[in-house]
Amino acid sequence: MRQLVITSGKGGTGKTTVAACLLTLAWRAGIADADVDAPNLHLLLHPKLLDEREFKGAKQVVKNEAACSGCGKCEEVCRFGAIKDLAVDPFRCEGCGLCVYVCPEKALRLEEVATGTLMLSRTRYGHFAHARLYIGAEASGKLVTAVRRKAEEACRDEELVIIDGSPGIGCAVIASLSGTDLALLVTEPTVSGLHDLDRILKVAQHFGVTALVCINKYDLSPELSAELERYCAGEKVDLVGKIPFDPAVLDVIRQGMPLEDLLKTRAGQAIEGIWETVRMFLH
């Protein structure tokens, strides 16, 4: 099984749309939505839910009020500011357990907490692993890893798993990128697009993942597209395609039409060309 991750440093460059088109082109493939704190793929895939379970992805401190003597040692040692006036702030607690260790009354304990929901669904194209990180939860990287495992398990017989990554360069991105066979970086012709492409490319290189680049909405700024091309040439990274800005794509998405209709758009045609190159790299 090969794993292809679609990612981008900057958000909103069109990862999900590109991933959906590639899925249609690959026809049979597993798919994983690794953008767990703002997942969107399910809006396109019309998935049939097969399995849904709570995912316990972090530990947090829980307090037994009755045993607390109010000595405040927990507050002293916590470096994350997670204990204020003897109350635990779940948004801040990182689950290190130091307060548990120092508490003379044994009033604190670490407990596994759910950080999201992990789901497996069926779609026309193959199995779909996805998740929803609970609002404000931490350890999104761990949930991403769980989504990928779920996809790997469900798609043992598939030759390809496509992973729709999240924006950024932090833990969720590292978790969606590491150990994949190929990364397709989707960028756009803006100063931010160029800046963020440089950062995500370095992350891919850092983790030893081969990266390809495609430019979405390239015609919105031919000037910056040319600069992106020069950048790719300078970094010796393959630019595998340029996708035009095409309002027809949004019409397909808004109207909930089948994904095949995306391929009929001008943008879809360009993505078809990208797929031809990408599959060569996957071999």
């Binding site: 090969r2 026809w27 030759e159 066979d181 599959r279 071999h283």
Partner: peptide, 13 residues
């Protein structure tokens, strides 16, 4: 490193 399981020479379609 990661073990690569290969594509057994087949395409995707």
């Amino acid at each position: 490193g990661m073990a690569k399981q290969g594509m057994q020479g087949r395409g995707f379609r």
